[in-house]
Amino acid sequence: MNPTHDWSTTPVTTNLVRGAADLEQTPHGVLPHRLPAWARAQNTDGQLAMVESQPSGVRLAFRTGATTVELDVLPTKRDYVGAPPRPDGVYELLVDGRPARRATATGGNTLTIDMLAGTAETTPGPADTLRFEGLPDRVKDIEIWLPHNETTELGALRTDAPVEPVPGPGRKVWLHHGSSISHGSDAAGPTTTWPALAASRGGVDLVNLGLGGSALLDPFTARTMRDTPADLISVKLGINIVNSDLMRLRAFTPAVHGFLDTIREGHPTAPLLVVSSILCPIHEDTPGPCAPDFSEVSSGRILFRAMGDPAERAAGKLTLNVIREELARIVIQRAARDPHLFYLDGRELYGEADFAKLPLPDQLHPDAAAHHRIGERFAELAFGPGGPLAP
């Protein structure tokens, strides 16, 4: 600890937190949510309740001369029955935008999920204290990115020098919505999910509404996006609608229009990019639902397989190719009166050649290397010169 400075405790409040819609007060401190309380009240899905509380893209941001930072955390770790243990969530500390320290938390609550039985049970556990030492002895901007896939309650923030908020994001705000792939799926850490990588390369400030299993055109998600301050917006649609077998083409088309209409109520002229799914061979031409396959669990793998019948496309069941074609058609139709609306085929981010070199380990989610590839390509195609979201 720096002996020339006083040890101080700073409450975690909204002026220190970025990427969250709401901070819920808990007995342990605050719990960041990526959907506001009114939207959560309209949801009855346990999957969405879990993933919106996982703080993908959420980080503490403050300015300080401290050389030591402590943060009390209470994580909720997931344990899937029949599956190998999941790695602990990673906390990443950045100094002036550059990675400086990584940490994991021990203890915490455990959420045990039985995918076959459809049950989930939480076992309470103790909080932990993260300690980041040896930071540069000068005034600097610090960000602590929370684990993208592990619900985390935040307790006391302690430093050996005073803390003040960083004034404003200083960059254009990019609001993104998508599935578990946008959420971060199997990325190596919170700053290396593909949206975080793309935001860093594109020089924009990320608000990530990637919601694992839950990019389902929910009206409350559209209203959340409508009400969230943003300069640049993207929505990545397709895979969850197919693998949940949620709707048919008849319902899909007006639902997309309604989702975009709602976003436009709050952001009438912001660049808005509609992105279709990356390549996912099991669902390219085969409808959902998608189900876990435990045939290789003894070797530490859970796979996914498509349960639908390709012949059911004639009855309006959705596949990724059907959705891509319809999204492109919708964007062309709307762009005639909305010149700030654009479309990107997700296979430009990850296509057949990428699948050959970096296959989806579980047939559904990209691995850490593929997240890097997707993030780099999105940054180039969307934020690069002439891109639809070029800041």
Rank of each mutant, 00 (worst) to 15 (best):
H176I: 14
H177F: 11
G178N: 01
S180L: 05
S180C: 09
I181H: 11
D186H: 15
A187T: 03
G189K: 02
T191D: 07
T192Q: 00
T192G: 09
T192A: 14
A196N: 06
A196Y: 05
L197I: 15
S200A: 15
R201S: 12
G203R: 09
V204Q: 10
D205F: 11
L206Y: 07
V207W: 01
N208I: 10
N208H: 06
L209G: 09
L209A: 09
G210I: 10
G212L: 10
G213I: 11
G213R: 01
A215M: 15
L217R: 13
L217G: 03
F220N: 05
T221D: 15
R223C: 09
T224D: 00
T224A: 13
T224I: 07
R226K: 09
T228F: 04
T228L: 04
D231E: 05
L232H: 02
K236L: 04
G238C: 10
G238L: 02
N240P: 09
N243R: 10
S244G: 06
L246C: 05
R248E: 08
R250N: 12
R250F: 09
V256D: 06
V256H: 04
G258I: 09
G258P: 02
T262C: 08
I263A: 07
I263P: 00
H267R: 11
P268S: 08
P268E: 03
C280T: 14
C280N: 13
I282G: 01
H283T: 15
E284K: 13
E284V: 06
E284P: 02
D285A: 12
D285N: 15
C290N: 01
D293S: 07
D293H: 05
F294Q: 00
F294P: 01
F294Y: 15
E296V: 13
V297M: 07
V297A: 15
S298P: 03
G300I: 14
L303N: 11
R305T: 13
A306E: 11
